[in-house]
């Protein structure tokens, strides 16, 4: 297969992924929006731009769409209800990190993202049998630590640990950090998950 054939094949990926990528807009930090009336005006402008930008699908609420594999949830309770189990959550985050979104993928993987405006930490949980990190890269560094009663595998390339995976009972869990975090930070976050 050559590059053109792969490019054509990518034209057949799931409609839900296409729609997700088509609707995405530049993220706006929620905290700033809530604190500033000026920022509210920015949001209105951003939404307006989103509706008129040529690379964004226009909104549609015709009610005949197939379920998008990626669903957003407003609260952790809604996410847990969608997943069919109580999604364990951390009660500690690194400084300045706030909730960015709660979502589920095909209702098989719960995904929660926190951001400090530049970096992000994505937390994934699944009751399924597989690794849910989605990190297929070959990392130069690996380390195992004990945190929250589990053995946690850390992966990185010398600039902090970017992936942490562990099993908690029946659940497979992962943290994905960009930029990488210290082992102490990830350990503290995992230990706080209840």
């Amino acid at each position: 297969m050559n590059g053109e054939q792969l490019f054509r094949l990518l034209g057949q990926v799931d409609d839900g992924w296409i729609e997700e990528a088509a609707h995405v807009r530049r993220p706006v930090p929620w905290r700033k929006l809530l604190l500033s009336a000026a920022a509210c005006l920015c949001l209105a402008a951003a939404l307006y731009a989103g509706l008129t930008r040529p690379d964004v699908l226009p909104p549609d609420d015709d009610g005949v769409q197939v379920v998008n594999p990626v669903e957003r949830w407003e609260t952790a309770e809604e996410l847990s209800q969608a997943m069919g189990f109580s999604v364990p959550l951390p009660d500690w985050l690194p400084e300045d990190y706030d909730l960015e979104y709660l979502s589920s993928i095909s209702r098989q993987i719960a995904e929660i993202c926190w951001s400090d405006g530049t970096g992000s930490i994505v937390y994934r949980v699944s009751a399924g049998p597989d690794d849910v990190s989605g990190d297929y890269a070959q990392h130069s560094q690996t380390m195992e630590i004990q945190a929250g009663g589990s053995t946690v595998t850390l992966l990185g390339d010398g600039e902090g640990w970017v992936t942490a995976t562990w099993t908690a009972g029946e659940l497979h869990c992962a943290l994905l950090a960009q930029p990488g975090q210290t082992a102490e930070t990830l350990s503290a976050l995992i230990a706080s998950i209840q």
Binding site: L10, W17, A22, D55, S103, C113, R124
Partner: peptide, 24 residues
């Protein structure tokens, strides 16, 4: 490829598709 995309964090999946589906 679907499994690969499904396992990616949303931000990376969107970046990949914006480049290799939409050609941005």
């Amino acid at each position: 490829i679907q499994r690969f995309l499904g396992a990616l964090p949303r931000e990376k999946r969107v970046l990949f598709l914006r480049r290799y589906y939409f050609g941005d």
